[in-house]
Design a protein around this nucleic acid. Structure first.
Length: 805
DNA sequence: TTCTCACCCATTTTT
DNA sequence: TGGGTGAGAA
């Protein structure tokens, strides 16, 4: 039985009850947390092997504390040891510590590590979790104070959008012009800032849906209450409202939480900040750990300002900097530090390491002709590492945007290199899982209209739009949920024959399952529901390629239910916590976005796609200017600092983005790396490939056509790049000094007009290649030739690598 | 009701 | 280029 966040009776004890009763524990067990807490006189072993700053951060228990922890400086260790220390010194019981993280992964890791430190399970830390899971926990206890019942359901983004779509349509607003998805984003950003319908500014309120933004938002909130539901944003917003409107409740939590600890403080948004500040007012013992240089979620509402302003917000705050890095080599560290130093808005830290391995590899920068070659070369290099005994688990490819992943996947499939994509769609976001959950929800929570709508005609029962509209009309007129409306309508003549029979059958099934809920184990019931509803059968009959996988996922879903004692407990867990279990056992290369790599580390890290427009991403620059650029730079910093021993940065001169070719120039970030710690790898002939020479040639010829480019950029990085080029220090800067805008051009056009192929190579020409021997040119694509080699078969090569015969 | 075709649009993502 | 969506036909 894992620890799930359903409130238990003992959790409902009031805060001023005796601490022991509070977390339902017996008096201190010998060797237990509390026992250690009582007699911790001798210096505790957990304080061994800490550096002075870490020790200071752990021992400074009273008052506000900000720990600025650079990448790889032992942030999690400080956080967990601090908790262990608070417990060991008897300053608080486990149930009196509030520890919040952003992700379930981080929460899980913290639980495990505290478990190691204090020996045994951390059953007694009920308030260690994500912002959201703690939010729900509080909200369920006081649901009635914010107009909900304690069994409220939590809508995911998909439900949220469907609900909004209905409201938008109900207002007669053109859903094409004002997409529900966009509105969901807007509402989300309001909730991130802690703004209710009444709080949003006039301008913003009018900015959506022909000026009806505020009304739609208010309608949406009303609807949620009617459905007894919340969305993710509400879990924090409503808790905040609860505290503000009910000082006695807040006082209760003030008494309860003697210590507040926050992980990744740089990622907090406004609500989270307000929420924390409110809770920390009680004890004033708030410890935030974070790194302003790793703030990469500004676009999601995170306020770097929170961390920059900490000392003002919490008067008397102490700030401790952790700058000693235990992860990376000096080269990697120097590269990352040098890069991030280009940012203006930062508190400033200087990371250092004592890892002065003379053998350490410099950070490597390499060029490829196009993204395909980039993937090919990285694939080859990984194979080489593998042959040298390098574990694939310790290799990661970190990309800026997920479309970049595909090329690597394709390549790895070809090579037979095992890989895993980290952070793809979550388990519970899959279609079949959501359908199944909708069935379970409708049984557990009859008023859940969104669940009802989702499965009312899945599998097909002949209950289409027309029928649903009738239900909706009735439901709205009589202010009852859809299932209630359905219950009435099967008794009347409003629905025609087939639909009516189908609906009646369905309603009878619901009734039967609800009745069985009382008697049967929930896993068994779940199977019965999927079976009797015809849902399993639907996929069994489906002959598409993904059907077997979906059936497998459904089985997995049932299996995972065994860990919960009730259907309700399971439902809450899955919407909030469940993520796909990665089989970490298999040895495989990890492919993920830079964002999802935060907090991880690998021996070898590949960083492909360092090109202007992709990284830094054009949109970040366009929409947020300098701030956007700085966030991108932080992302680059996060990427490099994931590497322990080897960091390999790549860029490709050509990339196919949406079917058309995009020519690109090296990222300005490359010019921000320190020469002394970086090695530019010349790809020379290694695979008959296209190395820097080619890039040079490409660049030169492109700038011969410079007239067609607009040049407006005059950034410092760019100027430096230009200077570097003049001094001959880097291979990347572009001659001419003007920055071209990235353009979209047809592939052929690029090749012909921009690069310019060698006129000697025409279709049918005989050529010789060092590696592949003699062959006949079968097609020409700029300076790239497709050649049918007599012995090596068909290859694509660059014309500079072959000679005409 | 359901299927098909045309059209639109393309970062980053946790809960 | 490809996936997701909405309007129209079968």
């Amino acid at each position: 039985m894992s620890n799930h966040p359903i409130p238990r009776a003992d959790d409902r004890a009031t805060a001023d009850a005796a601490p022991f009763e509070d977390h339902g524990a017996a008096p201190p067990r010998a060797g237990g947390i509390a026992a250690r807490a009582m007699g911790a006189a001798r210096p505790a072993s957990y304080l061994d092997n800490l550096n002075p700053e870490q020790r200071d951060a752990i021992l400074t228990i009273d008052g506000p504390l900000l720990v600025l922890a650079g990448a790889g400086t032992g942030k999690t260790r400080v956080l967990t040891t601090r908790i262990a220390h608070i417990l060991a010194t008897g300053r608080a019981f486990p149930s009196q510590i509030l520890a919040v993280t952003f992700t379930n992964r981080a929460a899980r890791e913290m639980k495990e590590r505290i478990g190691h430190l204090v020996g045994g399970a951390v059953e007694g830390m009920p308030w260690l979790g994500t912002f959201h899971s703690i939010g729900v926990k509080i909200l369920r206890r006081h649901a009635e104070l914010v107009g909900l019942r304690s069994d409220f359901s939590i809508l995911d983004t998909d439900d949220q959008i469907r609900l909004m779509k209905q409201l938008i349509q109900a207002e007669g607003i053109d859903e094409k012009r004002w997409p529900a998805r966009q509105f969901a984003g807007l509402v989300d950003s309001w909730k991130n800032r802690g703004l209710g319908p009444k709080d949003i500014g006039e301008g913003e309120a009018r900015s959506f849906g022909n000026g009806l933004g505020r009304k739609l938002y208010a309608d949406y909130q009303d609807r949620l209450k009617v459905l007894n539901a919340t969305d993710f944003g509400d879990l924090l917003m409503e808790t905040l409202r609860l505290f503000c409107e009910n000082p006695d409740v807040l006082a209760d939590y003030h008494r309860r939480f003697r210590f507040v600890l926050v992980d990744e403080y740089q990622d907090t948004n406004v609500v989270q900040y307000l929420w924390l500040r409110l809770l920390a007012q009680g004890s004033k013992n708030i410890c935030c750990v974070g790194d302003d240089d790793q703030s990469i979620y500004g676009w999601r509402g995170a306020e770097v300002d929170n961390i920059l302003r900490f000392e003002k917000d919490f008067p008397g705050a102490k700030v401790i900097r952790l700058e000693r890095n235990y992860r990376s080599t000096a080269h990697i560290l120097a590269s990352a530090s040098h890069l991030i130093a280009h940012n203006e808005a930062r508190l400033g830290k200087t990371l250092f390491t004592e890892n002065e391995d003379p053998e350490a590899e410099k950070v490597c920068v390499a060029a490829a002709w196009d993204s395909e070659e980039e993937a090919r070369s990285i694939g080859d290099e990984i194979e080489r590492l593998q042959r040298g005994g390098h574990s694939l688990n310790q290799i990661a490819i970190l990309v800026r945007a997920s479309f970049q992943m595909r090329e690597f996947e394709d390549r790895f499939v070809t090579l037979g290199v095992p890989y895993r994509v980290v952070g793809g769609p979550r388990f519970y976001e899959r279609l079949e899982i959501r359908d199944a959950l909708a069935y379970f929800r409708i049984v557990a929570q009859p008023a859940d209209d969104l669940a009802f709508e989702r499965i009312v005609n899945t599998p097909r029962r002949g209950l289409g739009d027309a029928s649903i509209q009738i239900l909706h009309a009735y439901g709205r007129a009589n202010r009852v949920p859809l299932t209630a409306a359905a219950g009435h309508l099967v008794e009347t003549e409003e629905l025609k024959g087939k639909a009516r029979t189908a609906l009646r059958d369905l309603m009878q099934s619901f009734a039967r399952w609800r009745e069985q809920l009382e008697h049967l184990p929930h896993t068994e019931l779940a199977e019965i529901i999927l079976e009797e509803s015809g849902y399993t059968e639907m996929w069994q009959k489906d002959r598409s390629a993904e059907a077997p996988g979906r059936l497998e996922n459904l089985k997995e879903l049932i299996r995972s239910m065994q860990d919960f004692e009730s259907l309700a407990g399971f439902l809450e867990h899955i919407s909030l916590v469940m993520d796909r279990d990665q089989d970490a056992s298999a040895d495989a290369v990890s492919i993920m976005t830079l964002h999802s790599a935060k907090g991880l580390e690998f021996d070898t890290v590949f960083l492909p796609g360092w090109e202007e427009g992709l990284f830094p991403h054009q949109r970040a620059l366009d929409e947020n200017g300098r701030a956007g650029l700085e966030e991108e730079r932080r992302l680059a910093y996060v990427g490099i600092t994931r590497a322990k021993h080897r960091a390999k940065i790549w860029f490709a001169s050509n990339r196919r983005i949406h079917g058309s070719w995009q020519s690109s120039i090296p990222s300005r970030f490359l010019d921000e790396l320190p020469d002394a710690h970086v090695e530019v790898v010349e790809q020379q002939n290694r695979y008959g490939g296209y190395g820097l020479d080619t890039v040079g040639a490409y660049g030169a010829s492109r700038f011969d056509n410079r007239g067609s480019f607009n040049s407006t950029y005059e950034t410092p990085g760019w100027q430096r790049a230009r200077a570097n080029k003049a001094a001959g220090t880097t291979g990347f800067a572009t001659p001419g000094g003007e920055r071209p805008r990235i353009r979209q051009i047809e592939g052929e056009l690029i090749a012909r007009s921009v690069v310019g192929g060698d006129p000697r190579f025409t279709v049918g020409a005989r050529v010789f290649h060092q590696k592949f021997g003699n062959g006949t040119v079968s097609s020409v694509d700029g300076n790239k030739l497709t050649v049918d080699f007599d012995r090596a078969g068909q290859k694509r090569v660059v014309d500079s690598f072959v000679t005409a015969l």
